[in-house]
Simulated assay, not measured.
Amino acid sequence: MDKKPTHSLSDAEVSSQLRAHGVTPTQQRVDIARILFAQPQHLSAEQVLSVVNCDGQVVSKATIYNTLNLFARKGLVREVIVDPSKVFYDSNVSDHHHFYNVDSGELMDIDSQELKLDQLPTLPDGTEADGVDIIIRVRSRA
């Protein structure tokens, strides 16, 4: 997990944020959202499951995945797929890119101002660009 200052959100604040994005706040959704929105961070579904269930709660893996997918569809989090078996849910939904450390499994933000693209390739007919996500894979030097 990223190490950044955390802030605690009340149930009312989280519920309001969920409603503003068209998500009906249930207790499990509020609990999951509170974890995600506590700080800018990149969490896998397994990490969210572990944190949610650490207080003796029992939230199923299916509920975690369904909620994270719903949050991603509604724009509350950004889904970052670093490889077919590893997906992170990024609480920072602003335009930015990532470094992915293949040795440690850590995903780190790259400010969008630090990476410039002069132009995109010619897009297929009848399409328009919806966004550009760049993941630069890094590893420790030998």
Rank of each mutant, 00 (worst) to 15 (best):
residue 94 S to L: 13
residue 94 S to C: 12
residue 94 S to T: 10
residue 94 S to Q: 13
residue 95 D to Q: 12
residue 96 H to C: 08
residue 96 H to R: 01
residue 97 H to A: 03
residue 97 H to M: 02
residue 97 H to E: 01
residue 98 H to W: 03
residue 98 H to C: 02
residue 99 F to E: 00
residue 100 Y to H: 03
residue 100 Y to K: 00
residue 100 Y to C: 02
residue 102 V to L: 04
residue 103 D to T: 02
residue 103 D to P: 02
residue 104 S to H: 04
residue 104 S to K: 13
residue 105 G to V: 00
residue 106 E to Y: 03
residue 106 E to R: 12
residue 106 E to I: 08
residue 106 E to F: 04
residue 107 L to G: 00
residue 107 L to V: 00
residue 108 M to L: 13
residue 109 D to R: 01
residue 109 D to I: 06
residue 109 D to G: 09
residue 110 I to H: 02
residue 111 D to F: 11
residue 113 Q to G: 09
residue 113 Q to T: 11
residue 114 E to L: 14
residue 114 E to N: 12
residue 114 E to Y: 15
residue 115 L to N: 06
residue 115 L to Y: 15
residue 115 L to R: 05
residue 116 K to G: 11
residue 116 K to Q: 14
residue 118 D to F: 14
residue 118 D to L: 10
residue 118 D to S: 10
residue 118 D to C: 10
residue 120 L to Q: 10
residue 121 P to Y: 04
residue 121 P to F: 08
residue 122 T to H: 10
residue 123 L to K: 04
residue 123 L to P: 01
residue 125 D to P: 14
residue 126 G to M: 05
residue 126 G to Q: 04
residue 126 G to L: 07
residue 126 G to C: 05
residue 127 T to H: 09
residue 127 T to E: 10
residue 127 T to G: 03
residue 128 E to C: 12
residue 130 D to K: 15
residue 130 D to Y: 09
residue 130 D to L: 15
residue 131 G to L: 04
residue 134 I to N: 07
residue 134 I to A: 05
residue 135 I to H: 10
residue 135 I to Q: 05
residue 135 I to T: 02
residue 136 I to N: 05
residue 136 I to S: 08
residue 136 I to L: 09
